[in-house]
Amino acid sequence: MELRHLATFTAVAEEGSFTRAADRLRVVQSAVSAAVRNLERELGVPLFERTTHRVQLTDAGRLLLPEARRTLAAAAGAREVVDQLRGGLRGTVRLGMMQAQRASAVSVARLLAEFRAEHPGVEVELRVGASAAHAADLRSGRLDLAYLALPTGSAAGLDLLPLDAQNMPLVCASDHPLADRAEVELGDLADETFVDTPPDWGNRIATDRAFAAAEVARTVRYEVGDLGSLIDFVRHRLAIAFVPPSAIVKDVDLRLIPVRHGPVFRTSIAAPADRRLGAPARALLATAQRQASADALATEPPSTPQPPSRPGS
């Protein structure tokens, strides 16, 4: 049984498509089909059910997939040991980045710059997408690490390293009836019209969960794919919105209103909980953890000096 056949089988299983697997492996589709046929012939069972519309694992394929992943991980570990003996870490890390990554405590560029200085032999492949999509890709093996903005309850099967948390204010036009309020509650917003991002974005998930917890329904009339457009809809009085404060530029035409028990935008870097990361991904995660610890120390308020105690007191 050849490792390349197992790698091809795993790619088809994770992508759900021979075409996408070929793109991922950077080979022609006929090579992917041939590798899978060879593996099926060797094992004596079909691994995929093929139709004109989709590719699905058979029962045998579902049993083989976790074993194939473990075998490939063991082989990668062996290569990593040899690479380190040769004088440096090598390999590739697949890192997911959010489409609107504006948390004040998160800088992908800073992370990659420090990591490249430490490990110049490691390539980092960036994939931009929504938080929920990255979570699914981590679970399936298509990503090694990813930045996410998901509540803990939406991150089953993942280990999260929290990086930043922002209470999202309500954003409305300066002449909106709520603009002069010092604070609002979610129940005050039941009859309002909202603009928001697609349902798989982190800030949308956090907002939907907050309204569900408060048992308040809301109307999202507009869905847009970037925070700049979302704020523009608010500025032109089409709707109101919840936006992480780090994404908002000060504007006299906008009002930011605190919300009691409102949504919280939490940014984390996530790894799959059910499999061991390769050495390059572990090294990148260690760099992220080190930066997060340094940032936390830098933002801690200074301790208040205590007056010296008097003798005998």
Rank of each mutant, 00 (worst) to 15 (best):
Arg209Ile: 02
Ala173Phe: 03
Ser309Leu: 10
Ala247Thr: 12
Leu63Gln: 06
Leu143Gly: 09
Leu65Asn: 04
Leu148Ala: 08
His119Trp: 07
Cys172Arg: 05
Ser293Asn: 07
Leu230Val: 03
Ala296Arg: 14
Arg209Asp: 03
Gly121Cys: 14
Leu112Asp: 00
Val45Pro: 01
Ala136Lys: 13
Ala60Leu: 00
Gln56Leu: 15
Ala296Ser: 06
Pro307Cys: 02
Lys250Gly: 07
Val36Asp: 05
Pro66Met: 02
Leu186Gly: 03
Val45Asp: 04
His236Phe: 01
Pro308Lys: 08
Ala135Ser: 01
Ala294Asp: 05
Leu126Ser: 11
Asp191Ile: 00
Glu15Pro: 06
Ser30Lys: 15
Asp191Trp: 00
Thr267Ile: 09
Arg209Val: 02
Thr19Ser: 11
Gly187Cys: 02
Val122Met: 07
Gly77Asp: 04
Leu163Asp: 03
Leu163Gln: 10
Glu42Cys: 01
Glu192Asp: 02
Asn203Gln: 10
Asn38Ser: 10
Ala103His: 13
Asp175Cys: 11
Ile269Tyr: 11
Pro244Thr: 08
Leu112Cys: 00
Thr219Val: 14
Leu63Trp: 06
Leu6Cys: 09
Gly153Phe: 03
Phe265Asn: 15
Pro199Leu: 09
Arg20Pro: 12
Leu158Trp: 05
Arg266Glu: 07
Phe18Met: 13
Ala11Asn: 04
Pro272His: 08
Ala270Gly: 08
Ala31Ser: 15
Gly225Cys: 00
Leu126Glu: 10
Glu223Val: 15
Leu64Met: 09
Ser246Ala: 07
Asp180Gly: 05
Gln166His: 01
Arg86His: 15
Pro66Gly: 01
Leu43Arg: 00
Pro263Glu: 15
Leu158Lys: 04
Thr197Pro: 15
Arg4Tyr: 11
Val28Phe: 04
Gln166Glu: 12
Ala34Gly: 02
Asn167Glu: 10
Leu161Asn: 05
Pro244Tyr: 06
Leu64Asn: 15
Gly61Ser: 11
Ala283Leu: 10
Leu85Asn: 08
Glu123Asp: 05
Asp159Gly: 03
Arg139Ala: 07
Arg218Ser: 06
Ala78Leu: 08
Leu163His: 09
Glu300Thr: 00
Asp200Tyr: 13
Arg142Phe: 08
Asp208His: 03
Ala22Asp: 14
Gly141Asp: 02
Asp180Ala: 07
Phe265Lys: 01
Leu3Thr: 15
Arg20Cys: 13
Glu215Lys: 07
His261Arg: 00
Leu57Thr: 01
Phe9Asp: 00
Arg255Glu: 07
Leu150Ile: 08
Val93Ile: 11
Leu186Lys: 06
Asn203Ala: 12
Gly129Cys: 14
Leu163Pro: 04
Val28Gly: 11
Pro272Lys: 12
Ala156Asp: 12
Pro198Asn: 14
Pro120Met: 00
Ala292Tyr: 12
Asp137Ala: 11
Arg41Phe: 10
Tyr222Glu: 09
Ala13Leu: 03
Gln291Val: 08
Asn203Leu: 12
Val27Gln: 05
Gly96Ile: 02
Leu284Glu: 06
Ala214Gln: 15
Leu64Thr: 12
Glu67Asn: 09
Gln29Arg: 12
Phe48Asp: 04
Gly44Ala: 15
